[in-house]
Nucleic acid binder design. Structure first.
Length: 938
RNA sequence: GCGGGUAUGGUGGAAUUGGUAUACACGCUAGACUUAGGAUCUAGUAUCUUUACAGAUAUGGGGGUUCAAGUCCCUUUACCCGCACCA
């Protein structure tokens, strides 16, 4: 009887065994070296796991099993980032509470993950929407609220220290990470009301309140995320979106800019990743130049520029929407009375990307020419550097140029380079020099920079300055499904709640109110009883002892910024992590995740870690020692075209390239695509929740409605995900694991394509049959030959090196090559096959565990030691030299390893074949690189 | 727009890090075997010239450095990713 490779039976059996014996959660020995490997934790969406997710998990598992076999204490934990928008939107559509949806989704994810056979430490599982977790997120927020950043000690410190200092000396001796410019003494401070004091303190707190703009969509009655918007219209419904200012919490991450930048130096990240971080932080050296207002000489605009040598080309100044000059108090200074209505109308109707702006009616004075320069308000020119105003040189900057053309502003060229015709590129080139710039004329960029900077500082027209692009991060969302912010308001002063967790209240509807405020404004029980320290009914609010609670919730990056720490001690009720455990695990040794997190998540987590370090809650400065970004899995999206004005969908076959560009593109689920990109309209229309445009018409062609396909990131938001479940059923987890690794290098993005998975399945069957001769498991107990040992040791070496280099695809070929060789020489020896099985268990744990068992082993292969590598067995005494002529390979010739160069030269020059290829020409030069190559130049 | 990445046969990819380009698979073409399978085995498979031997040309395009370039430098094209409320 033939024993076939029955993956279902094998995988089932060992998954049960691992779970029953708790194999991956064995007790740790703290005297052993640690290795903390981590995957970026998934968001449990309703779609379930897609085939792109496991790539990182499998790679981490291979690495974890390898490290384990090398004797490390390994943890490879997993959890769920479960607060967020997709779940909330699903709740809005269905009315089912996000908590329930999250529970269902997590269950499904877990089942899918368990089927992969990954050595995850499930007992360390965490979940950011669990109250035992977000209690600590809230606790950390309070810490930030109660902190300020001391620029002298370069760390966060308690706000109490700051208040004490204010009481003693005011802010005269304080150098803080703060935008607050006014100095005051102790007396002034003491005279302030509590409200005024708090207003000042808000400029210092690391978690603070400020007005920031959001994407407001009145028709949907909600604030939208950037990715919910396309061409200034909401993707859902195609309604216009406006910028709206709201009072929100922010985190003063900008105070940490310098440390975030410096910390990168020591980290083992790829250069690209570092570059992304560096450009996100965006440190720029430049100068602040003062421009005085024409009407009020006392008011100076401080304008930062990195290119002061273009000062004579400045023809207008922009106040960005975020500018503090446009606050109610200041606006009169900057906007002419007659222009008030126009400006207001503009601000209210801003759609983010159009070239729009409005003249304020006011001018500033150019510090050198003393000419009048018009002052505009606009959101078009990007305020990358948190500036209150921007000087615009339209001749040499593309957006300013477009703006100048639109508003018919003068364009003055002030740079010249005979080699470069594109004005916009001039300031990047050292050989450009100044023209039309009075005393700067003829100087190159470097000279003119130094000259003008010196001049400006001497005359007090400005001062040298360093600017960062890194903005303070918004820390509030007008959403329901997030961590409540533990704050209540007493006489409009924010006060903290120490009794944690502050639980997310129950509500009926997850929609925001008409003003775009959070759904929590509609919660029935969302007021704070100050005396009894508990949540009470909103109707009881009396502004004395029953006070309103903060209704915004935390953003999704809150919980994900410190989750790796919780894995060290996931069930601790008394603290977020026990000091002893934290000092052992310290940081993540290997972090695997998508490149799309290279900026956002990484900056936030690094900031958060540094903040905790300032209070010695953690002992390391950086959370992630080494990061690998797995490549994106690309899917084949389906896109249909929508004309919102006419309220119709148009089949792609009726549209040409130009028409398509104008229409709104909507991703639809690839489940509804039939052959030849035809859309199954019946199924699409019958969707219960997914489709919101049921009142729109479908324009067909020949009775058919077709879509376009696009290769892009596989993502639930693009409806192009492929689910791995059917692959488990058809081929098994081991095949899937190997196949996903076989697709290519981990860090490269790849298009998902199932067609060659058969090859991997065949390989596993071949390997299985190799162990079973005539239906019986067979193993040869004889001592292996030198040749056999050579095959084994070459393999061990190659696989080890490749895993250490994070090349997870190459070992698979090595397994195949080795198997082919073993079949050829009919080697079934235990001393060869046992080590191979151990190596193979990194990739195919179920398969290998079964073979291991058949080899008579009692203990799980998870605990097996990495095979001994005998370097002597792979040493050769001959090397087969490739002989090339003018770099072109012709034939091979063997020489002894220790053969002298001149002997090789003598022999090769007199070789028959050499003479044949030389064709009677004389060689000019013979290059011999020992044990590498011979090249004969003629 | 700004920032980053990728490009090797019909397909996924390999190349000891500057040293034999296309390993290993998939697919395809023959053939064998058969308890007819989504099985297994054998042979072939970059392109062009050639019956063959052999030769020439090929790592997105163009140029350069070198005895030697897929790999280093310059330039260019195409595609993908990120840009702060998706996670």
């Amino acid at each position: 009887m033939n024993i076939k490779y029955n993956f279902k039976k094998i995988e089932n059996k060992w998954q049960k065994y691992w779970k029953y014996k708790n194999i991956f959660n064995k007790k740790l020995f703290y005297n052993k070296k640690k290795f903390f490997i981590l995957n970026m934790f998934p968001y449990p969406s309703g779609e379930g796991l897609h085939v792109g997710h496991p790539i990182g998990y499998i790679a981490s598992d291979i690495y974890a099993r390898y490290k384990k076999s090398k004797g490390y204490n390994v943890i490879n934990p997993i959890g769920f980032d479960s607060f967020g928008l997709p779940t909330e939107q699903y709740s809005i559509k269905t009315g089912i509470h996000p908590k329930i949806i999250t529970k269902i989704n997590i269950k499904r994810y877990k089942l899918q993950l368990l089927r992969l056979g990954i050595s995850f430490n499930w007992e360390r599982e965490i979940n950011t929407s669990d109250k035992s977790y977000y209690k600590w997120t809230q606790w950390m927020f309070i810490k930030m609220f109660n902190s300020w950043y001391d620029n002298i000690l370069k760390k966060a410190r308690s706000i109490k220290i700051l208040i004490n200092e204010f009481n003693r000396n005011g802010n005269i001796n304080i150098n803080a990470g703060s935008p607050y410019k006014t100095t005051f003494n102790a007396n002034t401070w003491k005279k302030c009301t509590n409200f005024e004091k708090e207003k000042i303190l808000q400029n210092y707190r690391i978690a603070f309140l400020s007005k920031r703009s959001v994407n407001w969509c009145p028709e949907l009655g909600t604030v939208l995320a950037n990715d919910e918007i396309q061409n200034n219209l909401s993707k859902r419904g195609g309604y216009p979106v406006y910028k709206k200012k709201m009072l929100q919490w922010s985190i003063r991450i900008s105070a940490y800019s310098e440390r975030l930048l410096n910390g990168l130096k020591k980290l083992n990240f790829t250069e690209n990743l570092k570059n992304s971080q560096i450009s996100w932080i965006g440190k720029k050296y430049g100068i602040k130049i003062f421009f005085t207002l024409e009407k009020n000489k006392n008011i100076k605009l401080e304008i930062f520029t990195t290119k002061p040598y273009t000062i004579f080309g400045v023809t207008f100044i922009i106040l960005p929407l975020e500018s503090s000059f446009l606050k109610r108090k200041n606006i009169k200074n900057f906007v002419d009375k007659r222009k008030f209505n126009e400006v207001e109308k503009y601000i209210l109707n801003i759609k983010s990307k159009n070239i729009l702006g409005v003249f304020t009616g006011n001018y500033v004075i150019h510090p050198f020419t003393r000419k009048k320069i018009p002052l505009f308000i606009s959101s078009y020119i990007k305020d990358d550097y948190n500036l209150n105003s921007i000087m615009c040189v339209p001749a040499h900057e593309i957006n300013s140029y477009k703006f100048a053309i639109k508003f018919k502003i003068k364009i003055l060229e002030v740079l010249y380079n005979k080699n470069i015709k594109n004005n916009i590129k001039l300031f990047n080139n050292e050989n450009s020099f100044c023209i039309n710039s009075s005393f700067l004329n003829g100087l190159n960029l470097k000279k003119s920079y130094n000259f003008i900077v010196n001049l400006i500082t001497k005359n007090n027209f400005g001062k040298k300055s360093i600017s960062f692009k890194l903005k303070d991060a918004v820390f509030a969302r007008q959403r329901y499904w997030g961590e409540p912010i533990p704050i209540f308001f007493e006489k409009k002063i924010p006060k903290i709640i120490n009794k944690l967790p502050l639980l997310l209240p129950y509500i009926d509807t997850y929609l925001p109110n008409n003003n775009g405020n959070s759904p929590l404004t509609q919660a029935k029980f969302w007021a704070w009883d100050k005396k009894n320290k508990k949540i009470v009914s909103t109707s009881l609010i009396n502004y004395k002892n029953i006070l309103p609670l903060e209704t915004n919730t935390m953003p999704s990056w809150a919980g994900s910024s410190w989750y790796y720490l919780r894995y060290m001690d996931p069930n601790n009720k008394y603290f977020f992590v026990k000091k002893k455990k934290e000092t052992y695990w310290k940081y993540v040794d290997l972090y695997i995740g998508g490149i799309e997190h290279a900026t956002g998540h990484l900056i936030y987590a690094r900031f958060w870690h540094k903040f905790l370090k300032d209070y010695n809650f953690v002992s390391s400065e950086e959370p992630f020692k080494k990061i690998i970004n797995q490549g994106m899995i690309l899917g084949n999206s389906a896109i249909i075209y929508c004309n919102n004005k006419k309220k119709e969908y148009i089949t792609s076959s009726n549209l040409d390239f130009k028409e398509k560009k104008k229409l709104q593109k909507i991703n639809i689920d690839i489940k509804y695509i039939k052959d030849k990109n035809e859309v199954d309209l019946e199924k699409l229309k019958n969707l219960r929740f997914g489709f919101v445009y049921n009142n729109y018409k479908f324009i067909l062609n020949n009775g058919k409605f077709t879509c376009d396909r696009k290769i892009e990131k596989m993502s639930k938001s693009k409806y192009n995900v492929v689910n791995p479940d059917f692959i488990y059923d058809k081929y098994g987890a081991d095949t899937l694991r190997i196949y996903e690794m076989f697709l290519g290098p981990l860090e490269k993005s790849k298009i998902w394509d199932i067609k060659s998975i058969n090859g991997i399945y065949n390989f596993l069957k071949k390997f299985w049959n190799f162990f079973h001769i005539k239906g019986k498991f067979y193993i040869d107990e004889k001592t292996p030959s030198i040749e056999e040992l050579k095959i084994l040791n070459k393999m061990i070496n190659k696989i080890k090196n490749n895993i250490l280099d994070y090349n997870f695809n190459i070992p698979i070929s090595e397994f195949m090559i080795t198997l082919n060789k073993l079949i050829e020489i009919k080697c079934y020896k235990r001393k060869i096959l046992e080590p191979i099985t151990i190596l193979f268990s990194f990739y195919a744990p179920h398969f290998s565990e079964e073979i291991w068992y058949k080899l008579g082993k009692k203990k799980s292969i998870y605990f097996a030691k990495f095979p001994y590598f005998d370097i002597n067995s792979i040493l050769e005494d001959e090397f087969n030299y490739p002989v090339t002529f003018n770099g072109k390979f012709r034939f091979k010739k063997k020489f002894k390893i220790n053969e002298k160069i001149n002997m090789i030269e003598y022999k090769i020059i007199n070789n028959k074949k050499t003479l044949f290829y030389l064709k009677e020409k004389k060689p000019k030069k013979i290059i011999i690189i020992l044990n590498k190559i011979i090249n004969i130049v003629f």
